[in-house]
Design a binder for these strands. Structure first.
Ligand SMILES: [Mn+2]
Ligand SMILES: [Mn+2]
Ligand SMILES: [Zn+2]
Ligand SMILES: [Zn+2]
Lengths: 125, 125
DNA sequence: GCATCTATTGCAAGTTACTTGCAACAAGGC
DNA sequence: GCCTTGTTGCAAGTAACTTGCAATAGATGC
């Protein structure tokens, strides 16, 4: 994978922002530096990062797909339905373990997706 | 909501099959009895059932959206990536509780989605 | 630095899943 | 039956994402 100007901008933002970003947000970021960049270019860059395992997709139902840097410890998200902010949760916070699922079902788990929605402390006030 | 012939067919299948079904599967079922039924009709029926809270949508990432009858105890799914069969899991099987998340984050949880993928016991052989 | 090779890009057109406007139709209350 | 109005078929319309292709620009070797 070549270090093209647009790919570097996308990769850097995902890595430093460390929260799931939409294609649109990534596109806006890239265009601020390289105004001629096409939407499809961002899709292709993200696709290549995903194939290389450096980024993964996260689905927030009504909020659409987003992409997040993979070089962070495994975790999930809870998103505020009012302000949209997200907080990270690890499996321990959730009481979750794939081992437990294996014991209950006999399945060999190879992937799990957990996404929650609620009202954050600050929006509760 | 009127008990039109197509709506009854969709509702009955969702209720008795008790597993998430795709729009395509629902359409095929309806067409077997009412061949002139349009795809859009199935979308509209499912939309009305969902608005009435009698059905809810379940997202299986690469496998697309499906709809499941809501009159069953709350649960989640693990899908076999080889044969496609799904098994139900309740929050206890997963060690999950919204209370625990509230304690860890302060969020008031109003919805959670948990979907797993793996290899079922029979495909492991 | 320069030539060369080939991955990457911009653009426009193409897919796919899903939605919508509208005139014809059919539930179901009376 | 009769009428009201929710529902349907059809065709056209969106939204999100993908793809073919000729032009461009990273990388590599000199
Ligand atoms: Mn995160
Ligand atoms: Mn189920
Ligand atoms: Zn909030
Ligand atoms: Zn299986």
């Amino acid at each position: 994978m070549r270090n093209t100007r647009a790919a570097v901008l996308v990769g850097d933002l995902l890595r430093t922002y460390a929260k799931p970003l939409s294609i649109q947000e990534l596109h806006e970021h890239v265009r601020a530096h390289l105004p001629s960049t096409a939407y499809s270019t961002v899709y292709r860059i993200v696709g290549r990062l995903e194939a290389a395992g450096r980024v993964h997709r996260v689905d927030w139902r009504e909020r659409g797909s987003r992409y997040e840097w993979s070089g962070l410890p495994h975790h999930h998200h809870i998103v505020c339905s009012l302000c949209g902010r997200s907080v990270d949760l690890d499996d321990a916070d959730l009481g979750f373990s794939e081992e437990r699922v294996r014991a209950a079902t006999g399945f060999l788990v190879d992937h799990h997706s957990i996404e929650l929605e609620g009202i954050c402390p600050s929006c509760q006030r």
